[in-house]
Design a protein around this nucleic acid. Structure first.
Length: 104
DNA sequence: AGTCTGACTGGAG
DNA sequence: TCTCCAGCCAGAC
């Protein structure tokens, strides 16, 4: 469920655990979404887990990546400026599946 | 069943 | 802007 949704996040955009949780019909399960992300690496198909941050735009999962800065590197490579382990202008890059998806 | 832990969140100081 | 605190839920012991 979560992986499928995360794969829908457009390149150069990010989303938060809480919003993803709501999107899959489980508001309040933000932590479980995070746990799922921790297992994203063992998923059969690749998951852009680096596009998922917490509600403040901080790269809380950066530690789970090979290099401690790889998450930030990947984001910036996609055009998402990151400063001190957090998205500089979150609201500008935020992608809300509940709305953006329908307008698509 | 009880307890601890975690890639979370929102409010208070 | 940052730190602290209390809810939150599922999984591992």
């Amino acid at each position: 469920m979560v992986f499928q949704l995360v794969r829908l996040i457009p390149k150069g955009r990010v989303c938060s655990y809480g919003v993803l949780a709501k999107a899959i019909g489980r508001p309040g399960n933000a932590r479980q979404v995070g746990q799922a992300m921790a297992r994203a690496g063992q998923a059969k198909t690749p998951v852009p887990a680096h596009r998922v941050v917490n509600s403040s735009g901080m790269l809380s999962g950066a530690a789970a990546f090979p290099e401690k800065d790889s998450m930030q590197q990947m984001l910036e490579k996609e055009g998402v400026p990151v400063r001190k382990n957090r998205i500089v202008d979150l609201k500008s890059y935020f992608w809300n599946p509940l709305t953006e998806l329908e307008n698509e």
